[in-house]
Design a protein around this nucleic acid. Structure first.
Lengths: 281, 281
DNA sequence: CCAGTATTGAATAATTTATTCCGCCTTGGC
DNA sequence: GCCAAGGCGGAATAAATTATTCAATACTGG
């Protein structure tokens, strides 16, 4: 950063060739990465030795030294810009797609702590950690989330139930007691099967945690602890993905909170040993 | 940023000397600036040529290339840290946990485009888009990824098969032709059930796409198109989560690429209408 | 106009990086 | 257990990049 300013500052007191070099470097700072001193000389129309002398005159040890300084400047500048400017309009299709997706995702994830009170997360974690059984449910995209969370909970040694069949899930629910917990995941918060489960939970006094999009919905109203993931990307294809990932991310946060509570490194080691065995041919 | 993650992710499969080099670089990333390949070799106690070979093995053109990448990593990291630390000096455990997780995740996701050549992604997308059937498989954490991707592909109207039972999956595989595609997901790339599937695919000439961690592994060797997700967070509890999310993210990118190809907004609308129906009580 | 100085580039030296080649070790097959 | 194949590491060497020297030229102030 300082480097480019320094060059700019000395522009006036430079000779013709030096100035050409300086201009070229300022204009193509981001490309300098790929130039050797000779190439730079050719590009500007001067000799390689002049390039080196130019560098030394500016106070650098030699050409690589200047090059590195310029690269650093470019990178800090672009890092800062990336955060500040939010978006870069023109890029190759694929890169663009990926950047866009990552940007949206990052904002969605950042939002998690804003729309969920810390207390809700702590509540949810303590419910889960005290539960003798945990019933997970979610259909459609949310099934992935429920499934994922089931896996994590099982890893922690928690008894976690989940099934993709709503009828069977109700059967499973009938085995719960008030020491158990239900964790219901739904984008809309209106899925009828989940609402049935919620009613059942209320009747049997089973603590209910909901994980839905951040908007008023029946499921979160019925829940003892309501957790939310941001929704609302305008793109119909992207939005479901973001919501799902945000939900998963929230689950992962809960999982890590549980890890901190029960110091379960032992179990994890065990389970990774198991995985190792599975990978033997 | 990604550069150091990449190195960390490959630590396991390195030889003694390579590992010494990697450790030294990771420990002294900020000092590498001032090392020539020879000096680095001396510092680690190896030969200059080994240093160069190490760089090339990691995918860099040569030593200066690696050096620059490391410098970039150091600078972006320090710039980001500066920003983060300015914003949040001391925090509660929870906020800290979340920030940490998001930061790691972001780096992992950013890395996707760096460790996967654009060509691989395009290849994978065109394989998937041309396939008459797609068999997905993954066990353990990767099952979630496979399951997720199945859901997306079905939404696009692609015939996507997946089952959690390895034996049944083999049965499913027997229904594939050379117009089909297999997409196998595995963190390690060594799962024996998946390798069986891979062998089968090879015999029947079925195109094979692998999605594994970024390190040499049997599965990606066997694949026609090898896709990678970064691995290598030091925390044993966090790493599996990051790998899984990176894998899912990569799948989502593929999904969006497919969306762009077949302009399938129509189908998506249909399917969201369906979802709406499901949510009527 | 001239002496003195600064600037430039060709040639060359020095340094750094990349490649080649060879010996060593491991691995897998017989 | 032995041999071939292949990967790994290092010494030597080749190639490249960078730095210096030196001579020619241009410019400046007197």
């Amino acid at each position: 950063m300082v480097c480019l300013l320094k060059i700019r500052g000395m522009l006036e007191q430079m000779s013709v060739i030096e100035r050409k070099l300086a201009d070229f470097i300022l204009d193509n700072a981001n490309l300098l990465r790929d130039y050797s001193s000779q190439q730079l000389a050719d590009a500007v129309g001067t000799s390689q030795s002049s390039v080196v002398k130019f560098c030394q005159k500016l106070g650098y040890k030699g050409y690589p030294d200047l090059k590195l300084a310029v690269s650093e400047a470019v990178i800090t500048a672009s890092t800062l810009n990336r955060d500040n400017q939010e978006q870069n309009p023109v890029q190759s299709g694929l890169v663009n797609l990926v950047e866009q997706l990552q940007f949206s995702l990052t904002s969605h994830l950042r939002g998690i702590l804003e729309i969920n009170e810390e207390k809700s997360l702590l509540d949810a974690a303590s419910h889960l950690s005290q539960a003798d059984k945990i019933l997970l449910a979610g259909y459609g995209t949310s099934a992935i989330v429920a499934h994922d969370m089931q896996f994590r909970l099982l890893q922690l040694g928690k008894l976690a139930l989940q099934h993709s069949d709503p009828a069977l899930t109700l059967q499973l629910a009938s085995t719960l007691s008030s020491n158990s917990v239900m964790l219901l995941v739904s984008e809309s918060g209106q899925n009828s099967d989940l609402l049935k489960l919620a009613r059942y939970a209320k009747n049997k006094n089973i603590p209910l945690i909901s994980l839905t999009s951040f908007k008023a919905n029946a499921l979160s109203m019925a829940a003892n602890t309501a957790l939310y993931a941001l929704s609302g990307d305008e793109n119909v294809r992207v939005n479901p993905i973001l919501v799902q990932l945000a939900q998963q991310h929230l689950c992962h946060i809960l999982y890590l909170m549980l890890c901190q509570r029960q110091n379960s490194d032992h179990q994890l080691e065990e389970s990774s040993k198991l995985l190792h065995i599975l990978e033997q041919p």
